[in-house]
């Protein structure tokens, strides 16, 4: 069968090329050429492999509409894992070249070192990578990336964002919302214990800090969408980056908020960080912001002198609303970066 020439251009202007047959999806064809693009589910349901086709024809296979908003699809947006070329294609990728792995994704063993409840239906899971011959005991990843966790011997594999930063002890930290009836959630709730081994695939994903001078960085997190924000903020603290920073962290009820101690510690290291706790249905004694983090974002954008870079993570509804709010205030699209959490049962 004939193949089509695919040309990818990253956000920072690097170009990569590979060939793809008409019955092969772009993600797979790239991987065959040793180009591992950020992706997760591989079946059109998570939205991680979003990209814009700027030239050429393609067909889009079955996918979850929540992972590819209609507005984006209308302007050539697609999900690479279910895109099949009908001609040569030119594609614009919404991330930098450094997020593309040339080679193979790492698969390693890790031991559970902590599994703690941090709120109703929310767990903090800490793993330690088992030292191995090629990687020693290092945990190497970019803030904002995720790992896929697999329970050995069982067909359970789920992706979770990392909440800590790369380190030399092999530590991986996750914040996990327990989904009712979810396979991994059930396993975590009922069987997970310190000392057990998980298989970790990754790091993966393109979400992360974008260098744009000293423009303010506003982070908007719903629930466990806090995890990648914690990672990015911890990196900023570690590097002592000078950008003004705000975190809008929202939950339905005050008691659903978590990690306040960790955020206070972060503020001690990153003094310019403002944390705005947002509660949708507060009790009378609530002193923080009443409403969703998107409400708080919209309110603050109205008074912003410099339009910030906005980082979004959480359920699709939150991201869609925040993107709409940002657009309404004139924030350019390239200043809005997001990671959608779509539940897989």
């Amino acid at each position: 069968m004939n193949t089509h020439a695919i040309e990818l251009t990253t956000r920072d202007g690097e170009q990569l090329r590979f060939e793809c047959a008409a019955d092969q999806n772009l993600l797979e064809a790239a991987a065959c050429a040793q180009i591992v693009l950020p992706a997760q589910c591989g079946q059109g349901s998570c939205g991680t492999c979003y990209a814009d086709v700027t030239h050429g024809d393609f067909t889009l296979g079955k996918h979850n509409p929540a992972a590819l908003p209609v507005d984006d699809e209308a302007k050539g947006g697609t999900l690479l894992c279910c895109t099949f070329p009908q001609s040569d294609l030119r594609i614009s990728l919404p991330f930098n070249h450094d997020r593309i792995l040339i080679g193979e994704i790492k698969v390693r063993n890790a031991e559970i070192t902590a599994v703690d409840s941090v709120g109703e239906n929310t767990l903090r899971l800490e793993l330690r990578l088992a030292p191995d011959e090629d990687d020693g005991s290092v945990a190497e990843f970019e803030p904002g990336q995720f790992m896929e966790l697999e329970v050995p011997g069982q067909d359970i594999k789920r992706a979770y964002s990392l909440a800590n930063t790369g380190n030399w002890e092999g530590r991986l930290e996750f914040l996990i919302r327990l989904q009712p009836g979810g396979l991994f959630s059930t396993w975590l709730r009922e069987q997970a214990a310190v000392g057990q081994t998980l298989i970790v695939h990754g790091p993966k994903g393109a979400f992360g800090l974008h260098e744009s001078g000293l423009r303010p960085r506003w982070f908007v997190a719903g629930g466990t969408g806090l995890a990648p924000m914690m990672s990015m903020l911890r990196r900023m603290a570690e590097f002592q980056e000078p950008h003004p920073a705000r975190l809008y962290f929202g939950a339905n009820r005050a008691e659903d908020l978590f990690c306040q101690t960790e955020l206070e510690a972060l503020q001690a290291e990153l003094p310019q960080l403002q944390v705005i706790y947002c509660v949708w249905k507060p009790e009378d004694n609530w002193l923080g912001f009443s409403g969703t983090p998107v409400d708080a974002l919209a309110q603050d954008l109205a008074g912003a002198v410099v339009l910030p870079d906005i980082y979004l993570c959480g359920p699709p509804a939150l991201i869609d609303a925040a993107e709409a709010a940002a657009r309404a205030k004139g924030v350019p699209d390239q200043q809005v970066l997001s990671e959608r959490f779509l539940p897989t049962v």
């Binding site: 450094d98 792995l101 970019e142």
Partner: peptide, 24 residues
């Protein structure tokens, strides 16, 4: 030159050198 993903976490810069996201 651009640090690749394979060693990006294990390269450090000093003096006038810099790369976004690389420890200095």
């Amino acid at each position: 030159i651009e640090p690749q993903a394979q060693y990006r976490q294990r390269i450090f810069t000093a003096g006038p050198v810099g790369w976004p996201g690389v420890r200095h």
